[in-house]
């Protein structure tokens, strides 16, 4: 996934002229290795869900490229795309809106198979088997409707639906945010088990650092549609470099009384992504903002082999180099 960019036009007025662009995802590039879990973390509204939809080509990017196994997903023909869709699936955030209220959960899971031409009886059989695997006894739940299930159960259905096509890449868009803490843990463990069992690759999107830290191998920190830092989960947790990442970690409550929050991490709301600040987008809330932060957006520079950060604090002043 290279230089992915999505600008949403913001239309208004009688003639529906484009008046402004919401820069939801702006030049995000990353790679996911097979078998890896890439965590994507950021505040709400920073473009995480847009990113998920771009990856699966549910919306078309304005620029950039999504490649799956080296194949450009955007260039795929309709029939090729249908084949590709089996390999990449999405688990949705909202366990209520993501299930059709008129279908039994068995039919919900079987639908994807039917779309790909599996005979009805076999599709049903496989759907039932998978429901059992995610912890929903098909004899008890198969014929039920989504509204008869709890949030955690719905999310299990959601996972089963995504897995029934045997995908290799699973994009999880805040899969546990809507659930209670105790249910979250169950679903996370289920996801970890399934990953090992089926050799899956995850792109795991969340705003919850604890969850991200728990599941991810590598983490991508997003702020206002841009990547500000990427690195292994341990590196980020132990030595976050970007002021935004530091603030994120500082703001998650600590169990250790010696590590109480001694200052307020970040204040205020993120700026409007219709009209982001010039230069570094975080500078308006950054405690270390310098004059040059307003001039040009910082590039991602490596601080170690697996750790990159987009901040002038870690980039030598060009003048100093000269």
């Amino acid at each position: 996934m290279l230089g992915l960019r999505k600008h949403f036009p913001l239309r208004g007025g009688v003639l529906q002229r484009t008046q402004a662009w919401v820069r939801a995802v702006d030049g995000v590039s990353f790679e996911v290795a097979p078998g890896e879990t890439l965590g994507v973390v950021g505040e709400s509204g920073c473009g995480k869900s847009t990113l998920a939809r771009l990856l699966l080509r549910l919306i078309e990017p304005d620029a950039g490229r999504v490649a799956f196994d080296g194949e450009d997903v955007r260039a795929a023909s309709a029939s090729r795309m249908k084949r590709l869709r089996r390999d990449m699936q999405l688990v949705f955030q909202d366990p209520y809106a993501s299930l059709n209220p008129r279908l039994t959960i068995e039919d919900t899971v079987a639908f994807s198979l039917l779309v790909h031409g599996t005979p009805r009886a076999e599709a049903r059989e496989r759907a039932r088997a998978l429901l059992g695997r995610v912890g929903l006894d098909p004899r008890l739940y198969g014929r039920r409707y989504a509204h008869e299930l709890s949030g955690g159960q719905r999310q299990r259905v959601n996972i089963a639906r995504a897995l029934v096509l045997d995908p290799r890449l699973l994009v999880l868009d805040e899969p546990v945010s809507a659930l209670d803490k105790s249910v979250q843990a169950q679903v996370l463990n289920l996801l970890q088990d399934l990953k090992a069992e089926r050799a899956l690759t995850y792109v795991f999107i969340s705003h919850d650092l604890n969850v991200i830290e728990y599941v991810s191998d590598r983490v991508l920190v997003m702020y206002l549609g841009e990547v500000v830092e990427t690195g292994t989960a341990e590196a980020l947790a132990q030595a976050p470099k970007h002021p935004y990442t530091q603030a994120l970690f500082a703001s998650s409550p600590s169990m250790d009384p010696d590590h109480r929050m001694d200052r307020l991490p970040i204040v205020g709301d993120p700026p409007n992504s219709i009209d982001p600040p010039s230069g570094c987008r975080f500078r308006t809330r950054c405690p270390f903002a310098m004059p040059r932060c307003a001039e040009k957006p910082p590039r991602l520079v490596p601080v170690s082999v697996t750790h990159e950060v987009a901040c002038y604090l870690y980039e030598a002043e060009p003048a100093a180099l000269a």
């Binding site: 869709r85 909202d94 994807s112």
Partner: peptide, 11 residues
């Protein structure tokens, strides 16, 4: 989202 899910499944 269930419409998006159906699209993602290739329907």
């Amino acid at each position: 989202e269930y419409i998006a899910a159906a699209r993602a499944s290739g329907a």
